[in-house]
């Protein structure tokens, strides 16, 4: 054998032999891509703002809201009792450990759905369960509780109950002040004064 091949051959055999001697490595804790895909496409990860509000009002200790927006936005406005874990920091071991606590539902929210959804995927990949996304984020929160219009007179009982619940939530979070959005100008109710009945004149 040519002498110039001795070093590469020894190196290759040595490396291959070390592979055999290496201790068994820990299996990856990450969720396989196929399983992740199933869960990503499932709608069960979403929780409606009404459900979140209900648990907030009841002071449910098994729910923790996680605001995944930046620290500045979190300071500007956040939901009561929410933790701030910006998306960039969510994969840090300390945060992962925090989110892995048993018996607690972690509900991610952001301005819309996107950041919270990304945070959900990152955590799900690390096999963290009991995590959800608040559907529509803060945008949906505001439109549901602060911009909702009263139902029409012909609305179903469910719609009326939903509106009443939303109004109650609004009262709870704004300290009793109810401010419903104004109806569009086109829908203003015009009041037509009733004509005074004229007294019957003459005989029948």
């Amino acid at each position: 054998m040519n002498k110039k091949y001795i070093i590469p051959v020894v190196l290759l055999v040595g490396l291959a032999f070390i592979l055999v001697l290496l201790p068994k490595k820990k299996p990856y804790n990450e969720l396989p891509a196929k399983d992740l895909l199933k869960q990503v496409t499932s709608s069960s990860k979403f929780i409606s703002p009404e459900f979140v509000a209900d648990r907030l009002i009841k002071k449910d200790p098994s729910m923790i809201l996680v605001d995944v927006r930046s620290e500045d936005l979190f300071r500007e406005y956040s939901l009561p009792g929410a933790l701030n874990i910006p998306l960039q920091e969510i994969v840090k071991p300390a945060q992962m450990e925090l989110l892995s606590q048993e018996g607690i539902d972690y509900i991610f929210y952001s301005t819309g759905d996107v950041l919270a959804d990304q945070a959900w995927i990152l955590c799900k990949r690390q096999r963290i369960d009991h995590i959800y996304v608040m559907k529509g984020g803060l945008n949906e929160w505001f439109s549901s509780f602060f911009m909702s219009l009263p139902p029409a007179e012909t609305a179903s009982n469910e719609e009326i109950e939903l509106y009443q619940f939303r109004s109650a939530v609004r009262q709870y979070f704004t300290g009793g002040e109810t401010q419903t959005a104004r109806k569009p100008a086109g829908e203003a109710i015009s009041i037509t004064p009733k004509k005074k009945k004229s007294a019957a004149e003459g005989g029948c």
Partner: peptide, 14 residues
């Protein structure tokens, strides 16, 4: 084991 298999393949190739 995959590592053992690779070791054998290296030996066979050489």
């Amino acid at each position: 084991n995959a590592n053992l298999f690779v070791f054998f393949v290296v030996i066979i190739a050489l």
